[in-house]
């Protein structure tokens, strides 16, 4: 506010009057929402029905209203300078008359995201219950299972007869793609001395069984063994190993997983080199 010049000195009385009004306004602002019960309870607002909540958290109920604070009541002389929206008849009304009604909202129904936070997993679990009821296949590729098949192992996949595929396929597992029920492994083997890779869906009904023919001697230090596509690292044919494994398991009369050492590993490697 600009300072008053001497020529406007007669207007100085306005200044004091406005100051009083300003103080009064601040006091009223501090008490915003505080009111006596008979003025706050609007007669046209019905009591809220049970499923309805207050939009704005109702800061005070009539029971919790503290006693009105001492308020500066301006003299009647100043009351004519009151600002619009501020009433000077205190303490009856400290709220402006134009305050909007509080909106009441219907309570939202239960959130399906709470009851089912991961619907994809729910769908997959239902599928796995059907496709892998015993959980053996899941355990074979479970990361927390020490006995699980890992990349670098030689795996034998037996297919269901009549599924339009050959009976079985064996190869080095060079990739495990973990996607729940859609999980798959990538096997690299040889057919007619030609390197062949095949994606096998772990939980496909066409896959009858997956067996570990030979484990990798040392844990592979990569998750994807794509370097085995290079002639230098190619494992070559796993046919002999598979035949040995099958002969042994037949002799034992079990379909147990192969636990033999990697005695022929190096020799086999040499064979694969070109």
């Amino acid at each position: 506010m600009a300072t008053l010049r001497p020529t406007h000195r007669p207007l100085a009385c306005w200044k004091s009057a406005l100051r009083q009004a300003r103080i009064q306004k601040h006091q009223q602002r501090a008490l915003w929402g505080l009111s006596t019960p008979e003025t706050s309870a609007a007669p046209d607002v019905p009591p809220p029905p049970p499923p309805v909540e207050e939009a704005r958290p109702s800061s005070e109920s009539p029971a919790s209203v503290p006693p009105p604070l001492p308020i500066y009541i301006p003299s009647a002389k100043v009351a004519q300078f009151h600002l619009p929206g501020c009433r000077t008849t205190l303490p009856g009304v400290v709220k402006p008359a134009h305050e909007m009604k509080r909106m009441r909202f219907v309570v939202a129904p239960p959130n399906p995201k709470k009851t089912c936070p991961d619907p994809v997993k729910a769908v997959e679990d239902a599928q796995l219950q059907l496709l892998d009821p015993t959980g053996a296949r899941r355990r074979l590729f479970d990361k927390s299972n020490i006995e699980a098949a890992k990349v670098g192992d030689i795996l034998l996949v037996r297919f269901r007869p009549g599924s339009g595929q050959s009976d079985q396929f064996a190869g080095v597992c060079i990739n495990i793609r973990r996607r729940g029920v859609d999980s798959a492994i990538l096997l690299r083997g040889q057919l007619t001395r030609v390197g062949v890779e095949m994606w096998v869906k772990l939980f496909s009904p066409n896959v009858e069984g997956i067996e570990v023919v030979q484990r990798k001697e040392k844990r592979a230090r990569r998750a994807r063994l794509y370097y085995m596509r290079q002639p230098k690292h190619d494992a070559g044919s796993v046919e002999n190993l598979v035949r040995q494994y099958q002969r042994r398991s037949q002799a034992l009369g079990t379909g147990a997983k192969g636990r033999d050492g990697n005695s022929h590993r190096k020799k086999n490697n040499k064979k694969g080199r070109k």
Binding site: D118, P119, V120, V123, E124, Q127, L130, L131, R160, S163, R179, G180, V181, D182, F203, S204, P205, N206
Partner: peptide, 13 residues
């Protein structure tokens, strides 16, 4: 949209 997966038909595979 919550994601994609696959469904298998047990009989036809």
């Amino acid at each position: 949209k919550r994601g994609m997966t696959a469904l298998y038909d047990a009989t036809s595979g």
